[in-house]
Amino acid sequence: MIEVRNARKSYGETVVVDDVSITVPAGGVISLIGANGAGKSTLLSIISRLLPAPAGTVMVEGMDVTTTPGDVLARRLSILRQDNQMTARLTVRDLIAFGRYPHSKGRPTVEDRGHVERVIRYLELEAVAHRFLDELSGGQRQRAFIAMVLCQDTRYILLDEPLNNLDVKHAVAMMKLFRRTADAFGKTIILVLHDINFASCYSDRIVAMRDGRIAFEGPPEEIITPAVIREVYGVEAAIQEIDGKRVALYFR
C-alpha cells in the first residue's frame, strides 16, 4: 500500500501539487490522468523520492520514502521518468542488467541473469539486445528503459508516460504486459497516461488530477464519463461501450 498524506510542491509561485492525499492499495494497474501541468509527473516523482516534497509524507508499505535507505526502497519500488537522455553508451542488455543492481550490487547471480533474459524476451528485445542504446529508435529505447525497470522486479512500479514513442502495436503490447505483470505477480503498477482510452481499457482504477489536486478517483466506469472528462480536460467527449470497455471519442 502507498499512502500519500498532504503532499505539496510548488515551483516559485506556482503550486504544482496542492495538498494531495491518496491511498493506493497493493496490486493492480492504476492510471494517473489529467491535462498537461496537472501535477501527475510531480506527484509520481514525490512518491518515488526523486523529488523531495517540502510538506507531506509518503509511506510505501509503512516505510517513509524520505528516511528509508535508498537501497532498501530500490528493492520495493521502481520509477521511470519520461524523457530519459542518455550520454553513457550502454548496450540494451547491460542497461537492463543494471535493473538488478539493487539486488546484486554489481555481482549478478545466475538468478539475476535469468531475470535479464526473461525481460528481454517479454519485451521482444532479443534482436537488439547487443546494440548500443544510441543506435536504436526512440520506441526501442523506451522499451529498453521499461525493461530495466521491470527487471528491478519491485512490488511497486511507477512509470511516467511509458507509451511515449511507442507505435500502436507496441503500446498495446506494453499495456497487456503491465496487465499480465499485475495479475500474475501481484504487482502494483502506477502509470501516468495521456491516452485516456488506454487508461480505460487496462486499469483497475483511474486517478484524475486537475490543478495539482486529485479531482476524481475510481474504477474506469466511474471516471470515463462525459462529465468527468469535461471537468478534467475541458473537452466534450462521447462515451461508447465496446466489448464491455468504455471508449471516449473526443476527436471532434
Binding site: 526523486l50 535507505p69 535508498g70 528493492r75 520509477i79 553513457a88 550502454l90 543494471f98 543492481y101 554489481g106
Partner: peptide, 21 residues
C-alpha cells in the same frame, strides 16, 4: 566502484531509483 560510476552516468534519477546515493 566502476558499476556505481556507470549508474551515475545514467543520471541522477536512475541512480536514486537503483538505490544509490
Amino acid at each position: 566502484a566502476a558499476d556505481r560510476f556507470t549508474v551515475a552516468g545514467l543520471g541522477e534519477d536512475f541512480t536514486t531509483n537503483l538505490g544509490l546515493n
